[in-house]
Write a protein that binds this DNA or RNA. Structure first.
Lengths: 264, 264
DNA sequence: AACCCCCATTAACCTATGTTATAGATGGTT
DNA sequence: AACCATCTATAACATAGGTTAATGGGGGTT
């Protein structure tokens, strides 16, 4: 009895997109079709290895992963967290080999499709293509923001900022309840994401707990006062707007399809 | 006597694109057309301000700029350098306000066009659009690589890495001669790009000079042994490939236009 | 030619964060 | 119920890089 529900997208990607733009039935179907081939992966398994050829484009349906880059001597930087609804390798058509790896942090459910489908997508469903391109552009913005963190924020600020970022992103796909969410992450991974040592991340989390800003119980993290945490992390309203849906998108996309209809 | 030369693109953007893909005459003309409205700006002038609405899409024709993000208290991170041939605000359709500023470092020549032209581009010249999207994806890769630098490389390594990166990028648009190029950048800006203090950048440059890896005379920098400098900065071959032209691109794009022709 | 501003340079000192080491939780496996 | 591997937690100590401050050079401007 698992028939496709035509109106309420069941996939996190669908949910993410419909959070800022409505989809036609054709678009929803195409999206569902793309996500049909689902594979399961254990925790700590590589979805993509640095230096290897890209396989398929992937959509994270369930679970977390990290995108990371390593130096020859083993030092590692987590570039970004891959959350449900995120796409892996959207532009993989365009690169020979991956300059980063992607590794799951939890058991994961991943949809896979051929890169050629992206080209098809651009041709058949330009609005959808633009929406995905927008997601990609957002990811760049997130990475730039993390660069600001690592380059210019103190350990405490960085850590606070990351927690707020994850809170916001998970909210969009419905994975936060009353400021509480699952953070399936070791302190080593946090350290690698924030350019800190494990020991110092530990000290910093302790400080955040001592101040009373967060609560950690196993992998459950609770944020008591988002506003205060955001202010410690200098979480920027602009950046927030950016994560939220801009009105422009609908416009731009409508303009696009209008021209298409008018032109052809 | 400044007539458009139909076959040798005179703009750095054109040069950059033709370095990895050949263009039809229509594509060249469209590109020239896009770059027709050129404005000139003094050194240290803002092409875009953090928090403001995007105006037009811009193409850097001559000069350098930086893309930067600031914290409320003035700390600043240079996210990337904008070099001749680079595009500013390619996805500006999709965002309400800019989460970063762009400021020139030298007198600059900039081409400007309306964001709507991008939509037109996607519809009329998909190969060109994909080429520009590829440029955008490359920029994300550059930023991720800088994140790795700032998060995990030492000051010496970071600095070496940045110099090699700039050398490579400038080579593509023909601005390097025998390992020598113009670096129109104060030490403060280098510091902000690498997440270091001015004093420490100064120490680090001195070390690079003392080791004999670089030569600095005013704004002229000479790299004596790129290989050695690259090895100090752990400049990755993968990353290099990525900057170079992948064979795939031509394929992907041809596939795309084929389908288009076949389908319509 | 005196003045000014911006920038590079260096020294002396300071601190945020890294390193090393150890002990204790936790949870899965036999 | 003992074992093992991972992970968290903390203390003690080390250092890369930050801060402050002072000096001098270069290029405009009056």
């Amino acid at each position: 009895m698992t028939r496709a529900q035509a109106n309420i997208p069941s996939s996190p990607l669908g949910r993410k997109i419909t959070s800022y733009m409505s989809l036609t039935d054709e678009e929803k179907n195409f999206l569902n079709e793309l996500e049909r081939n689902v594979t399961r992966h254990g925790s700590r398994s590589d979805l993509l290895q640095q230096g290897e050829r890209y396989g398929c484009v992937r959509v994270m349906r369930k679970g977390w992963a990290i995108r990371h880059k390593a130096l020859p001597d083993g030092r590692r930087q987590v570039v970004n967290f891959v959350l449900p609804g995120d796409i892996i390798g959207f532009y993989c058509n365009l690169f020979e080999t991956a300059d980063h790896g992607v590794t799951t942090l939890t058991p994961a459910e991943v949809a896979n499709f051929q890169p050629e489908r992206i080209i098809e997508l651009f041709k058949l469903f330009p609005r959808l293509a633009a929406a995905l391109a927008w997601s990609g552009a957002k990811e760049e913005a997130i990475i730039a923001e993390r660069l600001l963190s690592v380059g210019r924020r103190t350990a405490l600020e960085r850590t606070a900022h990351l927690i707020v970022e994850l809170l916001r992103r998970l909210s969009i796909v419905g994975l936060v309840e009353e400021g509480r969410f699952t953070l399936p992450v070791t302190q080593e991974i946090l350290a690698d994401a924030l350019g800190l040592s494990i020991v110092h991340i530990n000290r910093t989390l302790r400080r955040l707990r001592d101040i009373g800003l967060i609560d950690l119980a196993g992998q459950q993290i609770t944020v008591h006062d988002v506003k205060q945490l955001a202010s410690v992390g200098q979480f920027d309203e602009l950046y927030l707007h950016l994560i939220q849906a801009p009105k422009q998108l609908e416009h731009a996309l409508d303009a696009k399809s209008d021209r298409k209809r008018a032109g052809d």
